[in-house]
Design a protein around this nucleic acid. Structure first.
Lengths: 199, 199
DNA sequence: GTCTATAAATCGATAGAC
DNA sequence: GTCTATCGATTTATAGAC
């Protein structure tokens, strides 16, 4: 019981730290956000951070996991109601406008990726998350196409790689050029659906 | 004459600094490379750097300009000989394998972009370079399609935005996951050329 | 498990000699 | 225009008190 509540308290601290880091990393950037700032905003000190995360990039990976969960869930919910190609495209456009338009998201992830390039092991962690995201997105695309009685013109995973890559590229560029439209991403999905064949 | 040779000497120092920064930024990353390291490798001291560039990101922008010139030239040369859709695709694949596969390139540019996000004015500088690159790539695509008697299914600039975004996205991900293939980018160009209409 | 205090190192930028 | 010397500020990470 004493051990249990201590465990719960620990988990609660950890989640508050992740939530705070999630907010600060997206608004100020990963490198520009110091661990002191994260601790302060969460109501702790740096000691609490290091008691929960061995390094800064470990906290960064936890934030990335949270981001991917959020984004995957919101995309799935956005698409759920669509029952036509046009509906899928409209739902996707609304989702992309909101989340690819959020300049902090992509910026944070690429900042984490580039600034940990030389740290052994982190690349594998990020690569595993990329594969998971691709596989999830691929399954979602295949499912949506199936609902419309269509089969994608390329393997679903390939379509996912294409969409993810273009989304990252647009997100990065929108970090310094917010006027760049996200229409390219919608056009890519449209091209995939228009070239789909009846099942 | 004295003024002339001083100017030349200044320009030479500047070019040596840019060339050295170009090499170090790509191999070690933009943030991880100190200006002391650039100066040392170029055979100068930090004072010479600040006599040629007001800030570190000004040197970074000069390196980006050099990179874009190099890449645009090499892409144009790669495509010049192609006289069929398959030839264009094969030439593009070779070029992409070599340059998108160069993990340092994209990493350096996105690092510069993200770490100067809060510095006023730098965003406009990067945005101008993005537009220039897009417009150049769009013109190149239109030209190549014209040689094959084709018209792209979308405005050339839109096609350029798509290819550039996907190239950046793949390049970023390859920085931590070098096994990610660049086939998605070739597939995108193939899709554009296959949907092209005879002119 | 969290906090205080501090270590240890680095980097961008500046001032002044030459 | 380049070099020497240094400032000033910040950071991640650690050691030990509680």
């Amino acid at each position: 019981m004493s051990r249990m509540s201590r465990k719960e308290s620990h988990a609660q601290t950890r989640e508050r730290l992740i939530a705070t880091a999630h907010r600060l990393f997206l608004t100020d950037g990963y490198n520009a956000t110091s661990l002191t700032a994260v601790a302060d905003e969460a109501g702790f000190t740096k000691g609490a951070v290091y008691s929960n995360f061995a390094t800064k990039h470990e906290l960064g990976l936890a934030v990335v996991d949270l981001l991917h969960e959020e984004r995957a869930t919101s995309l799935a919910e956005s698409m759920a109601a669509a029952d036509s190609v046009a509906g899928v495209l409209a739902a996707f456009e609304r989702w992309a406008e909101q989340h690819i338009g959020d300049v902090g998201w992509t910026a944070m992830e690429v900042e984490l990726a580039t600034s940990t390039r030389m740290i052994p092991g982190v690349g594998q962690e990020l690569a595993a998350r990329r594969r998971e995201l691709t596989s999830m997105l691929g399954a979602m695309l295949e499912h949506q196409a199936g609902l419309l009685g269509l089969r994608l013109p390329v393997p679903p995973e390939d379509a996912a790689v294409q969409l993810l890559a273009m989304g990252i590229g647009l997100g990065v560029q929108r970090a310094f050029d917010p006027e760049l439209p996200i229409t390219a991403l919608v056009d890519l999905l449209r091209s995939l659906l228009e070239r789909a064949t009846p099942v």
